[in-house]
């Protein structure tokens, strides 16, 4: 999912940065210092999640978890993903400084979309079955959206990458299913153990003495 530095063309990189800046600004505006802490720790879980490998048939893939992050954080997923990807670039050199904008935008926008989808479906069908479907779809949409936007970025950079981009998208189809299942079970677990984690978004936070 990470595009290496030096592959994309300058207009695509600039667009990625502009859109990421907008998304991050919205996300940061919605975070007060109380929730910033939670967002920071969830960003750390997102980072660690990318080191967890899930077997898919004969192969395996690492979790992406952007759908789940979108469900838990909403727009705040944008700055969380940005900082997690920056740390990945720093520690593992996945991606890099200039391509960070595009990488954050592809994952962040699909995370926010997945979060909206989850809340919409969950609101429509508040039954356990409906919730499972909503969670599955949000996990799958998180990966699908990221893969799709990444492919679009590649194609807009260079016509010659079209085939590579479609291969990249197809390779992510099994990951979407796996991610959907994991998100479904995880949301189920969170709702059983700590349901306030999913509702904090709507609640108004009691601000503890911060200017």
């Amino acid at each position: 999912m990470h595009i290496a530095e030096g592959v994309l063309s300058p207009p695509v990189l600039a667009a990625g940065y502009a859109l990421t800046a907008a998304g991050t600004a919205i996300g940061l505006r919605r975070l007060d210092y109380d929730r910033l802490m939670t967002a920071g720790i969830l960003a750390a879980v997102f980072f660690v999640g990318s080191l967890i490998h899930v077997p898919i048939g004969v192969s395996n893939a690492h979790l992406i978890l952007n759908g789940l992050l979108g469900v838990l954080l909403g727009w705040a997923a944008f700055p969380a993903i940005l900082s997690a990807l920056a740390l990945q670039a720093l520690l593992f050199q996945y991606g890099g400084l200039v391509v960070l904008g595009v990488n954050t935008f592809t994952m962040g926008l699909s995370a926010v979309g997945a979060g909206c989808l989850f809340r919409f479906l969950h609101h429509r069908w508040p039954t356990p079955g409906g919730r499972r479907i909503a969670a599955f779809l949000s996990g799958a949409v998180g990966v699908a959206g990221a893969a799709f936007l990444t492919s679009i970025a590649l194609i807009f950079s260079e016509e010659g990458f079209t085939a590579a981009a479609s291969l990249l998208f197809l390779a992510h189809v099994p990951v979407m299913l796996a991610e959907g299942c994991i998100t479904m079970f995880t949301v189920d677990f969170i709702l059983r153990v700590c349901p306030e984690m999913l509702t904090t978004q709507q609640q108004n936070h009691e601000r503890i003495g911060h200017a």
Binding site: V45, V48, C181, T183, F185, T186, D188, F189, I190, M197
Partner: peptide
């Protein structure tokens, strides 16, 4: 997923 959920909680 349960392990991950536990980690999140």
């Amino acid at each position: 997923a349960s392990l991950l959920g536990l980690l999140l909680v």
